[in-house]
Amino acid sequence: MSLRFLRLLAPLLLFPLAGLAQAQDTRVVAITQIVEHPALDAVHEGVKDELAEQGYVVGENLKLMFETAQGNSAIASQIARKFVGEQPDLIVAIATPSAQTVAAAARNIPVVFSAVTDPVGARLVQSLEAPGANITGVTDMLPLERHLDMLQRVMPDAKRVGTVYNPGEANAVALVELLEESLKARGMTLEKAPAVRTSDVLGAARSLVGKADLIYLTTDNTVISAAEAVISVGERSKIPVFAADTATVSRGAVAALGFDYYDLGRQTGDMVVRILEGADPATMAVERVEQLDLFVNPGAAEKMGITLSDELISEAKQVIR
């Protein structure tokens, strides 16, 4: 065999080896999301951006798979089983229903959840400090007492708080129970309006007219997906609508004291990177976002019959005009 022939053959032999090495170095991350709405979409973007910033680039050393369940738990289960069959390096589950379905299906694949309000109550982890299995993540448990302080500051005479929630979503039920206890301790009452589907949200909001002095929306995924329906009722009936997540303020809610769900996604992405690089999710404590920001919408307040004080507006990180 001539030397010239070997020189021509060498690159051809090395090419497949290089391709194989590149394939072996590529990590695969699957992301499942129960429904698309601004808050959860922001989590998704935050995860992707954090991965990229830490050197995991799609098309180079990272393959991303993404599916949304369109608010349907049965579809979420199908997605979970599909992803487990693909055997990715890690699965990210955004919101409680998606996290529960993935946890049930993925026994040997690391899972990182995000935007899950009560991971212990949802039976995802043994405890926040020591999850104990193949799953950990970032909780979006609300600082309810600080939220209620803000509501009473804006509407000190309000005694009846209305909320729309999905009784079939563990996240929503846990929050409503905590909310009812907190309001009772303040001498206030909670008027609950159930909505199992997004198409039920408008009717549920209408049922609160005459029963509630204000409406407070938690991070219930079913309701937040149809937040405009609640806001339209608030505008027509002059019932101020407040939200737990800041993204809903730009959609027409009066105010929210919360965190940026994009930051929640970035924090989630950082946990993903640590696990990809060898950390054990069983020993990684569940994390939460500590920074809270006030978002206000003075125009929305006027449409719903109230005026926000100049002092409150001056304290806001963002004023929606």
Rank of each mutant, 00 (worst) to 15 (best):
A21F: 12
D220I: 05
V230C: 04
R4V: 12
V28N: 06
Q267W: 03
L8E: 11
S114G: 15
V102K: 01
I306G: 08
V138G: 04
K82A: 14
F66Q: 08
E177R: 13
E67A: 13
D25F: 14
I306R: 13
D41C: 10
P119E: 03
A301L: 13
R81V: 13
A316S: 01
V201K: 10
Q54R: 09
A205H: 03
A104P: 01
L175Q: 13
A74D: 13
D260E: 03
F295D: 00
F5H: 15
S237I: 07
F15N: 15
E60D: 12
E191I: 12
P156E: 03
V111P: 10
A130S: 12
T307V: 15
A105D: 12
L3N: 13
G162P: 04
D213E: 08
K192L: 14
A23H: 14
D157C: 04
R107W: 06
V273D: 03
G187V: 08
L62F: 09
V176E: 03
A195I: 07
F295I: 03
L14G: 09
G299R: 09
A80C: 06
V35I: 10
A104E: 12
V173G: 10
G168E: 07
P131G: 09
E181K: 11
V29M: 02
V92H: 05
G187M: 14
Y56D: 12
V120S: 11
D270L: 02
Q267Y: 05
D263Q: 09
R123N: 08
M141K: 15
V43C: 08
V29H: 03
Q54F: 00
P110Q: 13
V176D: 02
I94M: 07
E277P: 08
V286P: 04
Q152G: 13
K184C: 00
V29A: 08
V111E: 07
V161Y: 06
N221V: 15
L3C: 09
I79R: 06
V84T: 11
A247G: 07
G203V: 10
P110N: 10
A227Y: 01
L183R: 02
M150A: 14
T163E: 04
E53C: 09
K48L: 06
